[in-house]
Design a protein around this nucleic acid. Structure first.
Lengths: 250, 250
DNA sequence: ATAATAATGTGTCGCAATGACACTAGGTGT
DNA sequence: ACACCTAGTGTCATTGCGACACATTATTAT
């Protein structure tokens, strides 16, 4: 699916688009996978349109696979963006034009409402792949302020708020971390999403009390200072625990 | 806005519809406002389509106003329903036909993805008003099992799950209850949404500790047995408390 | 080597929130 | 007057949580 087919607007439904906020966690930072548009020099969310025989969820999986190479990812709808003016002055068209792609104006000029999805992925497994309109595809830290297409900055902010609210209801840690991880890494992930510091000792106690982690014999070596233990999620217990929601608000 | 204009499909965007799950609380039961279709004899959610210059939120307000007479209601998107087959065998068309409304087939025959909204309203203020396709508009208790159009039963189930998850983040009590209410009423509302019983004394203690209620001098008279005190929400403090979320899961 | 540095592992203490539960007070109907 | 039902209020033991201290282990500087 790395083949780059020309864009054919007749395959897609009018008026409906998708934007995917793909979260990854690396170097103790929460990052989002963004496309850098060839000519307008802005960043844009990976997005796309709905085929006639797809659900939105299937379309989102397809779009995310094209940008990451990954299958069957954790994806959630979080909001529809429907401001009538949101897709005006769509620089993506301009970009397509400049790229010599001959966009179908009667398709792109229409009003689009966009369904926002967020995805949680294991950073290391992703092969960032640009699309027809972009020259590269990068992980961008949430602290970095870059110029973005249309309302994409708003969409990312909404995704983060949702992530924060759903931290206790969705398997966020499981999806964002590699299989083996350390307690400090898990804590930093939580701190990044919540936007505030947590007490190291209380965090560990609470996490362990959930009884969803397996402490491994191994330690993570190589880093400076004392080697932390590695943990992995106990899938069964984690899944079961999420059904009620991990009690408490962090 | 009680005027009944003929349906003109050219005012609306193709492919996009809305369905509104309007919740009310009466007689200690959670109820949903439904339309009863004239000819197919099924119940349907109040719904409609998106005008070219509206946001989805504005469309939802418009739709809910037409069915309830109420303005500026509490409305939240909760999910988009996009199964490609969801709008097949759309009995609403049949119903329109039978009602002699001459529906624009080229509009209705298209595939629609539907954005689900839920609304929280004060039961007593609503004037249920049927639309062109329906013969009446009723409050239906969630315990009642009625035959419903398309995937509308699924949509309602999703709305309730969302309501449950958001019970601590949204002003649900405030919007569903009259200005003055009793503690047992508030408790029953919580129990209905959560689907389980709560301890009377612990519930009261926890609620009062949030410091969001004003205990009034009055008592609710007329009922059998001991008269309960009336309470009202302290808007400022409630609003402020919700910003963090009412701590704890019920 | 040795010490300084910095991060991790582990434990304690007191307060506040929670769940389980019992008694009293105020209404109705007989 | 009494039974019956519902509402108001209080207690107690346990748990959860925030604040905090000390020991351990790895790297790095001297």
């Amino acid at each position: 699916m790395t083949e780059t087919k020309p864009f054919n607007s007749t395959e897609y439904m009018n008026h409906i688009s998708l934007d995917c906020v793909i979260f990854g966690f690396n170097n103790n930072e929460l990052k989002v996978l963004l496309l850098h548009l060839k000519y307008s020099k802005e960043y844009a969310l990976p997005g796309g349109f709905l085929k006639y025989d797809e659900t939105l969820e299937q379309a989102a999986q397809r779009i995310v696979k094209e940008r990451t190479g990954l299958d069957k990812l954790f994806l959630k709808q979080f909001k529809v963006f429907s401001d009538p003016d949101r897709s005006k002055s769509n620089k993506a068209i301009f970009d397509a034009d400049m790229a010599g792609i001959k966009p179908d104006k009667s398709f792109f000029d229409k009003r689009f409402i966009s369904v926002g999805f967020y995805a949680l992925v294991d950073f290391r497994k992703v092969k960032p792949t640009p699309d027809l309109f972009s020259d590269h595809c990068d992980w961008v830290s949430l602290n970095t302020d870059v110029s973005m297409l249309l309302d994409h900055k708003l969409i990312i902010e909404n995704a983060i708020s949702t992530l924060r609210l759903q931290l206790s209801q969705q398997p966020i840690g499981l999806k964002l971390l590699p299989r083996k991880f350390t307690m400090p890494e898990l804590q930093t992930l939580y701190e990044t999403i919540l936007g505030r510091d947590l007490d190291r000792r209380n965090f560990q106690r609470k996490m362990l009390n959930y009884n969803i982690l397996d402490k491994l014999k191994e330690r993570k070596t190589g880093g400076a200072h004392k080697s932390p233990y590695l943990y992995s999620f106990n899938m069964e217990r984690y899944q079961k625990a999420l059904e009620d929601g991990l009690s408490g608000i962090w």
